[in-house]
Design a protein around this nucleic acid. Structure first.
Lengths: 212, 212
DNA sequence: TAGATTGTTAATCGATTAACAATC
DNA sequence: TAGATTGTTAATCGATTAACAATC
């Protein structure tokens, strides 16, 4: 008898969900098994109502008087975000950033496995061994492996061409680290990771900082 | 007689501003000098009203009948986002990601200069030469240079300690790439760059994709 | 002048917060 | 049972969109 949770979770809520996982990890390390919405909110700077609303949309781990069972809550959040499901990716553009992402161990925690990197001219990298291939080997690789996602780490000028290659290879989702807007068919899921966006917000907040 | 623009720009608007810069660059490369809000919106998937509202908050480069002067617009957007002002940063945690950020040329375009990286145990990296120092050299380095920002690329477990070091050294802004919430005084400007956030949104959209 | 396109005022939509009833 | 804490309904706030007046 699973309870049916709301079908559509808003993007603001989705963006906050990983921060709850962070609080849960710290609480687990401190030996706790339960947290109240007030405790969670205090740690993250959110109101307790917002915490309850967010969590109610993904879990029923909350119980009046005792708070949230953090083990159940963690699992429900991870299910919602897809972190419990293993997914395979290829990466296009093995420069400094591409290499960093391929070497990042933490992605395993989020269900992401980068099987191989592709570049027009692969430079040798001892840490990545045989995981870097030539771009024209991509199509064959995708045909032989189940690939759920492509990660674009090319320069901006190459990004749209990379996207076209990806779409032609039949991959349905793109994580785009190139600082430019991709032009792909509507049915392709695209998530843009634009570092300039964040930096702009940061500079703006620095420049317009309130003086108490 | 400079026109006074609205004092507070909303975060959603700030996050969209870099995408306008991207469209402007492409238009410049195509030899254009003007764009209408409809053209800009079409390229980015925004409505033309949203484009005009966003741009009106940072610029008066728009003229009825002719559209926006993209050279003036670019400069106004870059001013607002602080990209026209040179700022110096230090980076803590020179692992794969830290190295990638230190090697990224594109930051110059955003006014960011990473002067040095610090690590508990600096590993030699030929591309970074003498720019990687030991963490205990940080305080002296900050005393001798004007540092506007610190970038945290340590593991999550070290991030709060790194933040403390940064705050004690007198730096007022932090760009945090460690996947954890920092605990710092209110007056410190913090921008979190959490890769798990994006990945969660991406997986969610993949899993709950509408089938047309 | 006429018409295209901007900037702005009003209406809508969605997310956050407040108040409170439900529940363990 | 009494009381703490959740979940939810209603009120508020802010951002987006629609309608249109201003302007080059």
């Amino acid at each position: 008898m699973t309870t049916n949770l709301p079908q559509n979770i808003s993007t603001p809520t989705l963006l906050r969900l990983p921060s709850y996982l962070d609080v849960i990890h710290r609480a687990k390390n401190a030996g706790k098994t339960r947290l109240s919405s007030a405790e969670i909110g205090k740690e993250l700077g959110y109101g307790s109502v917002q915490v309850r609303k967010d969590l109610a949309s993904v879990s029923n781990a909350g119980k009046p008087r005792t708070g949230f069972d953090i083990y159940k809550l963690e699992d429900d959040i991870r299910d919602t975000l897809g972190f419990n499901e293993e997914k395979n990716a290829v990466l296009l553009g093995v420069g400094h950033l591409g290499r960093a992402l391929m070497n990042y161990e933490g992605f395993r925690e989020n269900g992401l496995h980068i099987l191989a990197g592709f570049d027009v001219k692969p430079t040798h990298d001892s840490t990545l061994k045989d995981k870097v291939l030539t771009l024209n080997e991509l199509e064959a690789f995708v045909a032989e492996n189940v690939i759920d996602l492509a990660i674009i780490c090319t320069p901006a000028s190459e990004a749209d061409r990379a996207a076209e290659t990806i779409v032609n290879a039949g991959i349905k989702a793109i994580w785009n680290f190139a600082p430019t807007t991709l032009h792909v068919p509507d049915e392709i899921v695209v998530q843009n990771e634009n570092i300039a966006e964040s930096l702009g917000v940061l500079w703006y907040n620095m420049i317009n900082k309130k003086h108490d």
